[in-house]
C-alpha cells in the first residue's frame, strides 16, 4: 500500500519541478497547499504588508513579468475586469515607484465599455499623470504597440485591451508577447473584453466577475449599513494548475492598494453605526391592519374535482 503513495509523492514532486521550470510566477502546485491551509489570522500575523489576497491566485505573489490574461464573458461585467486589471497595474506602479501605465485599447472596446476616467483612476490608486492611452486602429497595430511598449522600462505595466477573440491574435502572437515580456522583465496584462476561453501562451488566464461588495468601514470599526464599500471581484483561475471552479472573492482596498480575501459574501454587520441609515426591518409583532373576518365563508371553493385514476402498470 505504501508504493502508490510514494509514487504519488514523486509525481507531485515532478509536477512541481515542471511547474517551476515553466512559470515560476504563475499559479502552480506549490500554491495549492498554502491555499488550502489558508488562515486569515495567521497570515496577517506573519507579515501584514506583504500579505494580500493575490496569494490565493499567484503562489509567489504578483508576477513581475510575463503575460497575464484577464477575461470576461460579458461587456456589462467589464467594470470588474477593468477594476481588477487596474488594481494590478496600481500595485505594479507602487512597486516600481516611477512607473507609468500604458493602456492600449481599440476604439471599439473603448466605445463599448467606456473611456478611462482620470479622477476615477486617481481614486483607485493610479497616478493620472503617469497614465497613457493608446488608440490603435487595428488589432495588428495594437500588437505592434504592445510589443514596442514592452521594451520600455518606463512602463511598470502595459494593459492591452482586446474585444472578443480576433483571429489575428492567436497562440503565436501571445507566445511572442509572452517571450518578449519575459525577456524585458515587464508585465503585460491582456484584458479580453467579452471574449471566449482560448488557448494562449499567457502565464495564466483569470476570469474576473463582479461580486457583491462589503460596506463602507467607519472609524470606530463598524460599517455603514447600506453603503457601497470597497469593490469586490470573483476571480476564477481558468488556465492554471489550480483546478478551482469556484473562484476566490477578492476585495480591493484603494487606500492600502492591497487585495484582501473575503471568504464569503459579506453580510450586513450586526453592530452598525448608530448614525447609519438602518435597513428596514419587519417590526417584532406584526398585526394585520384590518380586523380578522369572522363567521364568513372562507373564500371560493376549489374549481373542478380531483379524479383518482387507476395507474396502469
Amino acid at each position: 500500500m505504501a508504493t502508490p503513495a510514494l509514487a504519488r509523492e514523486r509525481l507531485v514532486a515532478l509536477r512541481e519541478a515542471v511547474a517551476r521550470i515553466e512559470n515560476a510566477d504563475g499559479p502552480g502546485l506549490s500554491g495549492r497547499k498554502s491555499r488550502w491551509q489558508w488562515d486569515a489570522q495567521e497570515a496577517a500575523r506573519n507579515d501584514p504588508p506583504a500579505t494580500d489576497g493575490l496569494d490565493a491566485i499567484f503562489a509567489a505573489g504578483l508576477p513581475a513579468c510575463g503575460l497575464v490574461e484577464i477575461r470576461n464573458a460579458q461587456t456589462r461585467d467589464m467594470g470588474a475586469a477593468t477594476g481588477f486589471t487596474l488594481a494590478v497595474a496600481a500595485m505594479r506602479q507602487e512597486i516600481a515607484k516611477t512607473g507609468a501605465t500604458l493602456w492600449i485599447s481599440q476604439a471599439m472596446a473603448l466605445s463599448e465599455a467606456g473611456m478611462p476616467h482620470a479622477p476615477g483612476l486617481k481614486n483607485y490608486g493610479l497616478d493620472p499623470a503617469r497614465f497613457f492611452l493608446a488608440r490603435p486602429r487595428t488589432v495588428q497595430d495594437a500588437l505592434w504597440m504592445a510589443e514596442a511598449a514592452l521594451g520600455i522600462s518606463a512602463f511598470s505595466a502595459v494593459i492591452l485591451e482586446i474585444r472578443g477573440n480576433p483571429a489575428c491574435f492567436g497562440l503565436t502572437e501571445s507566445r511572442r508577447l509572452q517571450l518578449r515580456a519575459k525577456a524585458n522583465g515587464s508585465l503585460l496584462l491582456l484584458l479580453r473584453q467579452a471574449g471566449e476561453e482560448e488557448a494562449s501562451s499567457a502565464l495564466c488566464r483569470l476570469r474576473v466577475e463582479p461580486a457583491p461588495s462589503g460596506e463602507r468601514p467607519l472609524p470606530d470599526g463598524s460599517t455603514l449599513a447600506g453603503s457601497l464599500g470597497n469593490p469586490a471581484f470573483l476571480v476564477t483561475p481558468e488556465k492554471s494548475k489550480i483546478a478551482d471552479a469556484v473562484g476566490t472573492v477578492l476585495e480591493w482596498n484603494t487606500d492600502d492598494r492591497r487585495f484582501r480575501r473575503t471568504e464569503t459574501c459579506p453580510e450586513p454587520h450586526p453592530e452598525s453605526h448608530p448614525a447609519a441609515q438602518q435597513p428596514q426591518r419587519q417590526p417584532e409583532d406584526t398585526l394585520p391592519l384590518v380586523s380578522l373576518s369572522s363567521r364568513r365563508q372562507g373564500g371560493p371553493g376549489p374549481l373542478g374535482t380531483v379524479v383518482a385514476l387507476q395507474r396502469t402498470p
Binding site: 467589464m78 477593468t82 467606456g114 473611456m115 478611462p116 479622477p119 493620472p128
Partner: peptide
C-alpha cells in the same frame, strides 16, 4: 491637480 472628489467611475461613457 485633480480636485479631491468622491468616488468616480473607472470608465466613462461619452
Amino acid at each position: 491637480t485633480a480636485t479631491a472628489c468622491m468616488d468616480r467611475p473607472l470608465r466613462l461613457f461619452t
